[in-house]
Simulated scan of single mutants.
Amino acid sequence: MAYDPKLTDRVREYLAAIPELVIEEKEMFGVLNFLVQGKTCVCVREDSLMLRFDPGRQEEVAEKNGYHTMLMKGKEYKGYGYIDSYGIQDPRDFAYFLTLCLDYNKRAKASAKSKGKSKTGGGKTRGQ
């Protein structure tokens, strides 16, 4: 699955403007995942963003134009969702969603590391 290069560049530029962040890009499950401080923060999926945010803000975020809750096996996955391209055209809306993800990233737990062989490479890292 391809992702929009212009949207990808918008995310890169926004995150690059915050010098203290350690950012890694990884292609996973058909999306370009932006890991911040080693944790999934936001992903580019085709021409939309996949968001990771505080589950306690689900109702607030669900009211936003272009938002869709992530469903897994028919179940709502709180704290994760998608925002369509028309919901992030305005730079203020784009900044709102990235700030939402970055705010939660500070408190979010990192995914458990697999105990298998260590894999290196596969992503670009900035800020280490």
Results as ranks from 00 to 15, higher is better:
Tyr96Leu: 12
Lys39Gln: 04
Gly38Arg: 02
Gly87Trp: 03
Lys73Leu: 06
Gly38Tyr: 01
Ile23Val: 15
Gly123Asp: 11
Phe97Asp: 07
Thr99Gly: 13
Asn33Val: 15
Met28Gln: 13
Cys41Trp: 00
Tyr82Arg: 08
Ala112Val: 09
Glu13Trp: 00
Ser48His: 12
Lys119Pro: 01
Phe94Gln: 03
Phe53Gln: 08
Glu24Met: 02
Glu63Cys: 10
Lys109Asp: 12
Tyr14Ala: 05
Phe29Arg: 13
Lys64Asp: 05
Leu51Gly: 01
Glu24Asp: 08
Phe34Ile: 10
Met28Arg: 15
Gly66Ala: 07
Val44Trp: 02
Leu98Tyr: 10
Lys109Asn: 12
Leu32Glu: 03
Glu24Tyr: 00
Lys117His: 07
Lys106Ile: 12
Gln128Ile: 12
Val22His: 06
Ser114Gly: 14
Thr40Gln: 13
Asp4Gly: 03
Asn65Ala: 12
Val61Ile: 12
Gly74Pro: 06
Gln128Cys: 05
Val61Tyr: 05
Thr125Gly: 00
Thr40Met: 15
Ala2Tyr: 04
Arg126Met: 12
Tyr77Asp: 10
Gly87Cys: 04
Ile88Trp: 04
Met50Cys: 09
Arg52Met: 07
Leu32Pro: 03
Met1Lys: 14
Val11Met: 02
Val36Tyr: 01
Leu98His: 06
Asp93Gly: 05
Ala62Pro: 08
Gly79Asn: 08
Asp84Pro: 00
Gly30Tyr: 06
Gln58Asp: 10
Cys101Gly: 08
Asn65Cys: 07
Ser85Pro: 00
Ile23Cys: 04
Thr40Pro: 12
Ser114His: 13
Met72Asp: 09
Thr125Ile: 15
Leu100Arg: 06
Gln89Ile: 11
Met72Asn: 10
Arg52Phe: 02
Tyr77Ala: 11
Arg10Asp: 09
Pro55Asn: 05
Glu25Gly: 04
Phe94Gly: 06
Gly116Lys: 14
Lys109Ala: 13
Arg92Asp: 15
Arg10Trp: 04
Arg107Gly: 00
Glu63Leu: 13
Lys115Phe: 00
Ser85Phe: 08
Asp54Gly: 07
Ala62Cys: 06
Phe97Thr: 07
Tyr14Ser: 03
Arg126Asn: 10
Ala62Leu: 10
Thr69Pro: 14
Arg45His: 14
Leu15His: 04
Lys117Val: 09
Leu100Ser: 06
Glu27Gly: 11
